[in-house]
Computed example of a mutant assay.
Amino acid sequence: MNLFSNTLLFKRVAIAVSFVIVTLILWNTYTFFQKFKTEERVKMEILAEAQKEIGSISDLNASVTLPLKVIENNNSIPMILVDEKGDILYTQNLDSIKSLNPSYIEKQLAIMRNQNEPITISYDGKNKQFIYYKDSDLLNKLTYYPIALILILILFLTVIYLFYSSNKAAETNRLWTGMAKETAHQIGTPLSSLLGWISILKMEKVDETYIDEIEKDVYRLNTIANRFSKIGSVPELKSENIISVTKQAFDYLESRSSKQISFSFKTDEKEIKTKLNKELFGWVIENLIKNAIDAMQGKGKLHLEISQTQKKVKIIVSDTGKGMPKKLFKQIFKPGFTTKKRGWGLGLSLSKRIVEDYHKGKIFVKKSELGKGTTFQILLDKI
């Protein structure tokens, strides 16, 4: 509980700090942007005064060096000088080639009118000229600066989150692996005792039918222990007849299920060889059959079919249960997801891991219809 509280507190603090950082970035950028924009306005007003001074000179011998230098030093802010009639007198810092096209000039003038108020040059209150200008490239790039910083911040937080999540997932996997192996170890002790008791029962000449059934269940417990012991480690795959492995798991559950469920097993082949770990693959078949039985609530039809193509072997498990909507087809394989009142939601996620990670195959919901049933399909490579 303490760990959970600390984790929750850390997340809240991280979110709050991120929000403060983003707010400061946006505010500082906005302030700097406005300051820079004001400075550009001042530069254009100085340029307007220089232009006015040149236009007001009546003495041909007067020096215009300073106002010309002011105008020439504007090499970053695009501008257009227009007279009272709207005729364009002069342009600066626009594309020299594109400026040959009048429509380009008109388009740039429209942009300038939208961006900034024009600066008026008045000659003795009579003739007027107007300087239109737009933001410099540097100012335009500055508008993208906060977006870039926010993206960097998001990337940084995403890396932290993924690192935290992967560590948490790895810790959870280690926990489940440890529990599974400990379970296998704990089952081993009573199993040894049961084997001893079976030997005693045989010597006491108890009904062989009872002993056979007990041996089947002991064998079953031994299989379960082997399955749990293999979790967390790479299992050994051997060339096996998938039909006999599947039929063994199928028969075991059929004999221990409600007689109101009609079981059917179909295949046209006697043998299909593929690389398998018998214990783990049998676990997959049992999980699918148990899910089908639960979906049918103890009454209905369960059909298992095995077929092959040139390169693949197909195992289909169908039931006449309650079915599911299409949106759950992938969700049901996620750890912890379950539609049952009881259950941990691990059966199908474990089956997916066994089939896809260990056996390099595929398992998926082939089809499902509410109130009519569900069909699962497994695809494995043939030898």
Rank of each mutant, 00 (worst) to 15 (best):
Y164G: 06
T7W: 00
D381A: 15
T267G: 07
I131F: 01
R174I: 00
W27Y: 04
V317R: 10
Y252C: 08
R113E: 06
T177M: 11
S351Y: 04
T223N: 15
K367F: 01
A249D: 06
K362A: 09
Y30P: 03
K69S: 13
V313S: 04
V355D: 04
T31C: 02
N75L: 01
L175F: 02
I121V: 07
L348V: 00
I160N: 15
F265E: 08
D207M: 01
A295I: 00
N277V: 07
L81F: 10
D87R: 07
T143I: 07
P146E: 12
S244G: 03
M203I: 08
I77W: 02
P190D: 13
E305C: 09
D217G: 12
K275W: 12
Q297Y: 13
N167K: 06
F36S: 08
S349K: 02
A184C: 13
K372G: 11
D268W: 13
L191F: 06
S136C: 01
E269P: 07
E106R: 14
S122G: 11
I187F: 15
S5K: 14
S192C: 04
F10Q: 05
Q297I: 07
S56E: 14
I187T: 10
K366Y: 15
D319S: 08
F250Q: 02
K216M: 14
D59S: 08
D124A: 06
I71R: 03
K299D: 13
I147N: 15
I293M: 06
N101M: 02
V218L: 13
L94G: 02
T338K: 07
V22D: 04
L175W: 03
E305I: 00
I88C: 11
T274G: 14
A14Q: 14
L162K: 09
L47S: 05
N2E: 01
T7E: 09
I315E: 00
T339M: 15
M112K: 05
A292Q: 04
V17W: 01
H185S: 10
I150S: 09
S258H: 11
K311Y: 00
D87A: 10
L348I: 01
V64H: 13
D137P: 12
E236Q: 11
V20P: 12
P235L: 04
T183D: 15
G323P: 02
K168I: 00
L221N: 15
K360R: 11
E49D: 07
E72D: 11
I293E: 05
E106F: 06
Y144S: 13
M44W: 05
S76G: 10
D135N: 15
T309E: 01
S56V: 00
L142I: 07
V64R: 15
Q92L: 04
F163S: 14
V234E: 14
I46M: 06
G125A: 00
G336P: 11
L280S: 08
F265A: 09
K205P: 06
F156R: 12
K247S: 13
L9D: 05
I80S: 10
M179K: 15
L194Y: 08
T320C: 13
